[in-house]
Design a protein around this nucleic acid. Structure first.
Lengths: 332, 332
DNA sequence: CTGTTAGCGCTTTCAT
DNA sequence: ATGAAAGCGCTAACAG
């Protein structure tokens, strides 16, 4: 059975398709009587206009595109959660794409969004100067960047204050007593580098610091523990670990259990992000909260604002980081 | 700057737009020489065809719609994770909508998918006889149901064997020693009811059983603990709790800690689903795994199969449940 | 092999 | 207030 179209309705109601179109999108333009007549027919066939055709003819799609680095990742889940809440409430639909940390995919994703005429885009970009951000800017589609800042004064973004977060951690570390501090660097993301910069600056030369880089999975975090036992004697020297995100911290935690290292007596561990599991895991994690969920909400609200008024000035939000002290660290 | 279209390319290359269209979608139909000429122009303007127009003209969208009950829910996250992996690998894009447990939204969601011409739909429906499933069936769009079964022999689905899972739990409970068993029922979802049915049948009258119903949030799970202390003396009578999903079980766990009840000495607790946190939380949870992630993968594969060959017979997969014993229960 | 033409289903001037 | 007609950008018969 062929789909019923606006023409069928028009025929049945004895009017032109233009009138039917008006009844649907600009009802006030059509006479009370014809309007109800047409409405009746629409009801009768429970007709719904073809969204694709509408978009092609220039109407908004009520879809907004969200592109993140990795979907099944606690950080982004929290983020998307916040986003989806407000997107839905405003009667838009979320379209989600993961770049899986691949620049090509990221670019492809935003192309895909552009082609399907989303009304706006929310992106947690690879880096603020990625190709994708350029394309986005040129596209003219409203967008806001999440979890990154930008030097371009025309772009809207929402980001945590990573530098300050790093300092917060360092200030806290100073209240602990340890023989060494180890930084576990998890990625090249600019926010992570900012955290480290803040951390080092605040810590100064208070205590010896060593760093490990490129720890990208929970398993490699876990495996790193044996290396640190070997190389840094963390089982004998009292040490504090600053792992640049909670997810990897969880892996390190697992490694620590496996090596029977006492937390927090022997080793203290601090994460970053305050993902949901952080408070529920075996040893609740001391970490920095930047209210990811909230970040998502704000970003989505900004975007909706931008869509409604594309001429509005860009808004930039910086989320204040907060240190949450839990059982994985011990003062003394 | 106006978008460049197929016509601009045609003009510049000195051919008709039909030829350009062919170069794009059916290159083998066009002469080697013209082809490369056209390709050059396409390159030059880095032209990308408008997907909307393509779809309107009848081409597949390469989008598949996924509709779940609640996005930020560990169960669905695992599921979507599995789904998205294969969808992406097959070069489709996932479009995600949450019904937030609302039938209206569920229906609206599938309408939205239909209108945007997704090539296929994956749905974890409210109930197998919901309005949405009817609409889906009538639409003619390939779809597969997830986490539910169906009596209609023409529909494809992937579901865990809930009845058997329930029995598995009961069989395990028999190996424990307790004075009472309490069932914490979390929702009206048919799979949950099946689990309970299996559980009760296998358990028989082995031990007194009481049930609590309608526990839908982690917090209410937590609050329930005080009630159970009051009413069922779980702080004095040795008891086993069968909580119908891990998420709520986590809430109950929190309540148990708060009341200083020893797990598993005083109270054993068993969940269902084996969500990710289950193995990482303070007291790792004994639970039933139905490989949610795997379920998602299979569903997605089925769907892709159906899309490629709509005439293919429906396939139905039942996932075998497995009991995973962890620290939240103690034998003897 | 390639151009012409007629849609896909809707919105939107422009007349009336 | 309503109809006629021209697109939106692309694909697919149908000729040649």
């Amino acid at each position: 059975m062929k789909n019923t179209t606006i023409v069928d309705i028009a025929k049945e109601a004895g009017v032109s398709k233009a009138t039917v179109s008006r009844v649907i999108s600009k009802p006030y333009l059509v006479n009370e009587k014809t309007r109800s007549k047409v409405r009746a027919v629409i009801e009768k066939y429970s007709f719904v206009p073809n969204a694709l055709a509408q978009s092609l003819a220039g109407m908004p799609t009520k879809n907004i595109g969200v592109i993140v680095d990795e979907f099944p990742n606690d950080f982004y889940i929290d983020l998307i959660n916040g986003i989806d809440g407000v997107i839905n409430a405003k009667n838009y639909t979320t379209q989600l794409i993961s770049s899986y940390w691949d620049k090509e995919r990221e670019l492809k994703g935003i192309h895909s969004f552009l082609l399907s005429h989303v009304d706006g885009i929310l992106m947690a970009p690879f880096s603020s100067e990625s190709e994708a951000t350029k394309v986005l800017k040129e596209s003219g589609v409203p967008y806001v960047l999440v979890n990154t800042t930008s030097n371009d004064p025309s772009v809207s973004y929402v980001c945590g204050d990573s530098y300050k977060g790093g300092r917060l951690v360092a200030a806290f570390v100073k209240t602990l007593s340890q023989e060494q501090v180890i930084i576990v660097d998890v990625s090249g993301h600019s926010t992570v580098q900012e955290r480290i910069r803040g951390f080092k600056e605040e810590l100064g030369s208070y205590v010896p610091v060593v760093s490990y880089e490129g720890v990208k999975t929970m398993d490699s975090g876990k495996a790193l523990v044996r290396v640190m036992v070997e190389r840094n004697k963390i089982d004998r020297k009292k040490t504090t670990l600053f792992v640049l995100n909670d997810y990897i911290a969880l892996g390190v935690l697992a490694g620590l259990y496996e090596c029977d290292i006492d937390i927090p007596r022997q080793v203290s561990i601090i994460g970053y992000d305050d993902i949901k599991i952080a408070s529920m895991c075996r040893t609740p994690l001391t970490t920095i909260s930047q209210s990811i969920n909230h970040m998502g909400k704000i970003a989505a609200q900004s975007l909706i604002g931008l869509i409604r008024n594309p001429a509005a000035p860009p808004d930039r939000h910086i989320i204040e980081p907060v240190l949450i002290e839990r059982a994985s660290t011990a003062r003394s």
